[in-house]
Design a protein around this nucleic acid. Sequence first.
RNA 1: GCUCCGGUAGUAUAGUCCGGUCAAGUAUAACGGCCUCUCGAGCCGUGGACCCGGGUCCGAAUCCCGGCCGGAGCACCA
Length: 487
Amino acid sequence: MPNVDKYKQVVTRFSPNPDCVLHLGSARAIILSHEYARLYKGKFILRFEDTDPKVKKPVLEFYNRIREDLDWLGCKADEEYIQSDRLPIYYKYAEQLLREGNAYVCTCPPEHFREKSLAKEPCDCRKQSAEENIKRWQRMLDGGYGEGEAVVRIKTDIEHPNPAVRDWPALRIIDPEKYPHPRVGSKYRVWPLYNIAAGVDDYLLGVTHIIRGKEHLTNQVRQEYMYKHLGWKYPETIHYGRLKITGAFLSKSKIVQGIREGVYTGWDDPRLATFAALRKRGITPEAVKKMIIDVGPKTADVTLSWENLYAYNRKILDPESARYFFVSEPTKLKVKAVPKVFTAKLPLHPEKPEMGFREYNVTPEAEAAVFWIAKRDADAAEPGKMLRFMELFNVKIESLCADFVEAMFASEAYEDARKAKAKLIHWILEGTEVPCRVVMPDASVNDGVAESACKKLKPDDVIQFERFGFVRVDENDAELTVYYAHK
RNA sequence: GCUCCGGUAGUAUAGUCCGGUCAAGUAUAACGGCCUCUCGAGCCGUGGACCCGGGUCCGAAUCCCGGCCGGAGCACCA
């Protein structure tokens, strides 16, 4: 990070608008800000930018959801500020700028100012005296102007090559009765805009390094004029490019719209790339973090693929996750002539016997022992072929019926199966199964049965269903509900 | 249209500031093999990239110019 030595303590911040939950698109700002703060033993600030009760109206529930998302990511803030608590502070600096002739209250209709500005000409309000500006400012505060009738502008360079920089607006009027703020109600009618609020706060809170999207590049240019007026030094900035993930959109408005229309089940719908959804699916915060750190802060846009995230996650999950059997689309397989009682001792993890085992007894039945196997395995079965029931025994397929497969006990030894190149399949003894529904990433549901050892699983456990994939336990009562993460 | 960014294998990233050691490293995905009582993991191997065109130079992914492509901003949004 640039110029770290220039500061006695590195201070970074993440400043979301609480108008939606957080998603992968914000991950760069959060994780890089947090990690750099930690790396340099600095401070990481969370600042809610909720100064638009009209167009980007904040919603109360999101303040907390954002805090939760940050905690989940392991990026807990050292300090927290909420801009809607700080209006008097912005007023104070607005007044100073007005008094010192570095800002003015503009009462031109927006279109009129636009025309003038595009022609590199100042509007009439620009040249009025500081006294007049203060008078107008009072009038803004007192309700003498209606919405859209007056705005405080910061003087920049009216001939700046980028028209967006010319005398930008800093505070505007929002009708407090029509658009009350969810936190402070109708207390204020003059609200600061992004550049004055963020600019003043970054200075006051001692932010040394701003890490934000490159869409803020011109905001830096704008704010630098204000900093100059105030005699402040602008912090170091890092502007990173947009992060996209193939197959998912990272647009707040689309997420909000989809939820309102009922397309999605909630903020944690598995189709979304919100942190809530990732959490529900068993994607670990460590995986997200590692990925974002590897991507780094470059200005070029990046398009990640889900596979990348899965690879990071698998690396974390694989050594830790217990293994269980899940039979998707269960089909019956009957095994005749089981000669004796067999006990299958299945390790919870193939490389870690210390994690323990689960055991099942299979006893000879008069007619046949009945198992559940996955439809996929049943479909692949051919009469005469051998199948290996993992850690149990080998069977020989005899016939395929409409709703079950008939087989004959063949042998016990694993080596037999190897020699015959038999397929290894997982199985569940009929009568011991627990119903299980797997919610897939596309929100479809895969119904099946899980082995009885799954009864003791608790919500948030992340396990691997062998030959199926990693899943996170969501609910476990009469029925087991899990969310699919990835293979 | 105007003002800024950026462009290395399928994806992401290292190298670019301070030209040579880069006939370009790494991860992941793909493919082949080994191992394994999971279609997971692990191990070994293979293929795969400097946007294009000029210029400077003994030498350019790296510097300069032009083009093409992509992105962002141009709000009384953040």
